[in-house]
């Protein structure tokens, strides 16, 4: 039987901290969710070169046997690193391991931004309820900052594939349509109708080539009780593309969690205005509608891919069943809503 995960983590880190002695990983806890990566928090303790005891809270993100999305962990790692120290709060990335020897699968280790919340359900309870507009303003300001950033200046054109401004929409739609073709376990008449509409009514070219986070929505950031965001998480779908793509994902109705506001936080027009102010870009309503509907298709592709991973036996963990069971029908209803059919 393999050694406990804590000791294997400690052995790995010890090999990368030349001055450290008595390296230990303790308090390992798996964080629920994370169908694309297994996520654990732990405390790293060691003695430095002077013999002083040190301690730091950390996060381990490890690839599962099969994921609901196929992503390059190096892209995720570099995206986090690119925004470190900017107006986009992100945890510090520490080590990326692309081999499978150390912990059976590739992984990375980052600092934990501790002491804050991520669970959406908390937002609509006290004391968070009173901070929703402020939180929403911060959320879409950060998204505007991501849209405004220069991908080349961040070094991200080295790891992310560029795309022509007028080809952003087709690259993304074709990719996710391909995922649906490959992975659907049953016909999806609503999603297929949406794809036909999207192809018949393409959006204008992107205003600029931006970093697209790819999964920036309520639930993927760390917030406090004062309406401030302290960490933007889950960059595994980051890529270059149309900045409106991210705004559309944040407007996907499934991320409103049953509330009328965008992301369950603030009216859609206010959120778009905040984003425009921060990004210096325009949220053209017709283009934004296209990207919101596109993101309904993308969401459905992700949920059914999770089902496929379970059905084919690549990953039989219950986390692979939760997205399709909880979200496939809701995503269909979201698609109908965006198309004016619900």
């Amino acid at each position: 039987m393999a050694a406990p995960l804590e000791s294997r983590i400690a052995a790995y880190v010890a090999g990368r901290m030349a001055e450290a002695r008595e390296v230990q990983a303790t308090g390992l806890t798996r964080i629920s969710g994370g169908a694309s990566r297994e996520t654990y928090r732990f405390t790293l303790a060691w003695r430095d070169a002077d013999g002083a005891a040190r301690e730091r809270k950390m996060i381990l993100r490890r690839d599962p046997p099969a994921s609901l999305i196929d992503t390059e962990r190096r892209i995720e790692f570099e995206a986090y690193r690119a925004f470190r120290g900017s107006a986009v709060p992100v945890p510090e990335m520490l080590w990326l391991e692309e081999g499978s020897d150390a912990l059976d699968h590739p992984f990375f280790i980052a600092e934990e931004i501790a002491g804050f919340q991520a669970a959406p359900a908390l937002l609509w309870t006290e004391p968070y309820l009173a901070t929703l507009e402020k939180l929403g303003a911060h959320k879409w300001t950060i998204l505007g900052e991501i849209a405004k950033a220069d991908p080349a200046g961040l070094g991200l054109t080295e790891v992310m594939i560029p795309v022509a401004l007028d080809a952003c929409w087709d690259r993304e739609l074709s990719y996710w349509e391909g995922v649906l073709d490959d992975d659907e376990a049953e016909p999806l008449p609503i999603t297929r109708a949406a794809i036909r509409w999207l192809r018949a009514n393409p959006p204008p070219p992107a205003q600029k080539l931006s970093v697209v986070h790819g999964d920036y929505r309520t639930g993927n950031f760390l917030f406090d009780e004062h309406g401030t965001i302290h960490g933007v998480l889950d960059w595994e779908m980051a890529h270059l593309g149309d900045p409106l793509e991210d705004l559309g994902w944040s407007f996907n109705p499934v991320w409103s969690f049953g509330r009328p506001e965008a992301g369950g936080l603030m009216p859609h027009d206010q959120a778009a205005a905040v984003w425009e102010q921060a990004s210096g870009l325009k949220a053209d309503p017709a283009a934004l509608h296209w990207w919101t509907l596109f993101n309904c298709v993308k969401g459905q592709a992700i949920w059914i891919s999770s089902a496929r991973a379970f059905i084919d036996g690549g990953n039989r963990e219950p986390i692979m069943v939760a997205p399709p069971w909880m979200l496939q029908n809701a995503q269909d209803r979201a698609t109908l809503k965006v198309m004016g059919r619900l």
Partner: peptide
């Protein structure tokens, strides 16, 4: 057809559905 597609989501809707 759209009406039936809408009805199909009503049939499948769970109590905790987010939409």
């Amino acid at each position: 057809i759209w009406a039936e597609l809408r009805a199909s989501t009503e049939r499948r809707k769970t109590a905790s559905s987010v939409v």
